Amino acid sequence: MASTKEIKRRIKSVKNTKKITKAMELVAASKMKRAVSSTLASRLYAEYSWEILTSIAKNTEKITHPLFVEREEIKNILLILITSNRGLCGAYNTQIVKKVLSLFQNNADRASSPVEGSKPYPVIDIVTVGKKGDTMMRRIGRNIIANFFELPDNVSLSDIVPISELAINEYNHSHYDKVLVAYTDFVSALSQKPNIKQVIPVSKTSLKELINTLGDDFKNKDEKKEKIIDYLFEGDKDLLIP
């Protein structure tokens, strides 16, 4: 049986641990609040940007730039997987990794049981953003062509330019016929929705699918828009698109 002195020492140890845990909780809550505020603040910008993109995409048949033209045969796909660098974030990483694994499984199942006359199913390579996704993809033996681990908490345009340039260059050089992004959409502090969306090429089909996943606010506003904005391109519009 423990002595009184030993019991007091253990009680003190538990109290100290409680203080440390409380401090960690406050720090985490503060970071979470900033992250949520940043996410919500960017939605208005995303909304208007999406309105412009969808308006332009309605006339994609007039645009011959390769980023707007879908290829007939899809042999290779580049998937950009976005996860965190650390754990202790609930199901954030688990959900999106499961979504990606499901995509791999569906592709493998169709490849193992091909329909007569169907085209061969594509090979999927990975670009990882975040260490957790990179670790999981390496564990299952997927081909990772690049990884990005050093993104700051408050991501700016300059931080993601290397990722977008890599995707565009790989697509333009015909190394890949389609580029997908696997990401987690914030719903609430307790709910995040994993998504996999096509970003290159930009097509009417992919835009429509993405609009259908953006929530009722985006859908309703898109449905209410009866007026189609006609954009004027000064110069060759194919050259204006990088």
Rank of each mutant, 00 (worst) to 15 (best):
M1V: 07
T4C: 09
T4P: 03
I7V: 12
S13M: 12
V14A: 13
K15H: 06
T17K: 13
T17E: 15
A23Y: 06
S30R: 14
K33T: 14
K33A: 15
R34W: 02
V36Q: 09
S38I: 04
S42P: 03
S42V: 02
A46F: 06
A46P: 00
E47Y: 15
W50Y: 12
E51F: 08
S55M: 10
T60C: 09
K62T: 11
I63P: 02
H65Y: 08
V69N: 08
E72A: 08
I74H: 03
I77T: 10
I77R: 02
L79D: 04
L79C: 04
L81G: 00
L81A: 02
T83R: 01
S84T: 12
S84G: 09
R86Q: 15
R86I: 10
G90C: 09
T94R: 10
K98L: 10
K99I: 02
V100N: 00
S102N: 13
Q105V: 01
N106R: 11
N107R: 11
P114D: 08
S118A: 15
K119V: 04
K119N: 11
Y121W: 12
P122H: 00
I124T: 03
D125E: 15
T128Q: 01
V129Q: 00
D134C: 04
M136I: 14
R139V: 04
R142Y: 01
I145M: 10
I145G: 05
I145Q: 08
L151Q: 07
L151M: 09
P152S: 09
D153C: 12
S156Q: 09
S156N: 08
L157M: 10
S158H: 07
D159E: 11
D159K: 05
I160T: 14
P162Q: 06
L166D: 06
I168M: 13
N172R: 13
H173Y: 09
S174V: 09
H175I: 05
D177R: 05
D177T: 05
V179D: 02
L180K: 01
A182C: 05
T184P: 01
D185W: 06
D185C: 05
V187K: 08
A189E: 14
S191V: 13
I196F: 06
I196V: 14
Q198G: 02
V199L: 08
V199N: 07
S203R: 06
K208G: 10
E209T: 08
N212T: 07
T213S: 15
L214S: 11
D216N: 13
F218L: 10
E223S: 09
K225A: 15
I229G: 01
L232K: 14
D238M: 08
L240A: 12
I241T: 10
I241Q: 06
P242E: 07
